[in-house]
Structures are given as structure tokens and as C-alpha cells.
Amino acid sequence: MGPLVKMGEIAAGWDFVIAFIIGIFFGIVMEQAGFSSSKKITGWIYGYDFTVIRVFFTAAIVAMIGLVFMQYLGWINFGELFINPSYIWSILLGGALMGAGFAIGGFCPGTSIAAAAIGKIDAMVFVLGIMIGVFIFAEGFPIWDDLYTAANHGPLLITDLLGISKGVWTFIFILIAFATFWGTAALRKKYAHKELDYNN
């Protein structure tokens, strides 16, 4: 029963080997999807390329369906998975900063690393920026410590919040995702002419 390392099914030493292999596949998929190009990543904002949303939502529904089935079949102990805690204000502020960084910088951390790997200089600068940002956050930590830990609702699940089962939420989310897929396909036709020739 998974998670294998945490449940002691395989030795803890394998953890890093698995992390490395998963990282490799993560990198390959992101690069193949075109996430190594900021032009493709920001396309959804202006309606000329919806790759990000399509990849993102497809990945989410595949993982959700997989987790629901695995839990149903008893292959995974859902309680052992890491659930990120809901610190409402901190998340909203952080999300807003990240959103601005997304629109201005054209990457997010994972994609910038994949892009830096194939030689995108803008991505390398972006990674440098992340480190500067972390440094600023850390040095000023005493100032925002209280905000950082305010309004914590713990590892809250959306299914518990809405009082529905994981399967029902997956059902709803699949509907949302497919509505988005077909909707963006229609939008893409409308804005396709806006594509510009980048210098790569």
C-alpha cells in the first residue's frame, strides 16, 4: 500500500532515487509540452495558446481519478499524503505575488528550471530572481511572521469543506475541465491570428 516509502514498503534510502527518476520524467513532460518557452506559457492570458491550462487541468484530473481509484482499491493510504495547510491570507497574498510574477516573468519555478536546462537565458535569470525573492522573504521574515501564520485552517480538504465525497468532486472537476477545454478551443480560433514570431 502506498505511499511506499512512508509506509515502509521500500527502504527509505530509495526515496532520493525515486525523487530523481520522477524529476527526470517531470522535466521531460514539461519540456515536451512546451513549458520551456515563456511565449507558450503566457499564451493563455491573451488567448493565443492554452497549452498551460490544458496540461494543468488534464494532469489534475488524471491524478485525481488515479488517487480516487487507488484509494478505493486500497492501494494508497490517502491519510499519509501531504496536504498543504490552508493559511488563507498568506495563500492569497502569495498567490497574488506569484500571479504577477507569472505575467511579468513568463515562467513559474518548475517551468523556469526546465527552460533553463535547455539554455533559455531568460529562464536562468528567472531562477536567479526566485532565489533573490526567497532571500528577501527570509531576511524580512520577522516582519511578516504573523501574517504568514495567520488564519490557519490546517490541512483542509475541499471535499470536507463542501461536504461531498472525493468522487463527486472529481466528477464536478472533470465537467469544469472539459468545459474549459472546449471553451478554449473556440477562443483559440478567434485569437489565433495574434500569434507573433518569436526569435527562437
Binding site: I65, V68, F69, Q71, Y72, F78, T159, S165, K166, G167, V168, T170, F171, I174, L175
Partner: peptide, 11 residues
Amino acid sequence: LAIIMFFLPDK
């Protein structure tokens, strides 16, 4: 799949 999900009991 979505419909199957809908009826899958939660643990």
C-alpha cells in the same frame, strides 16, 4: 469515468 467517480464510495 466522471460518472463512475460520482458513485464511488469515499473512504
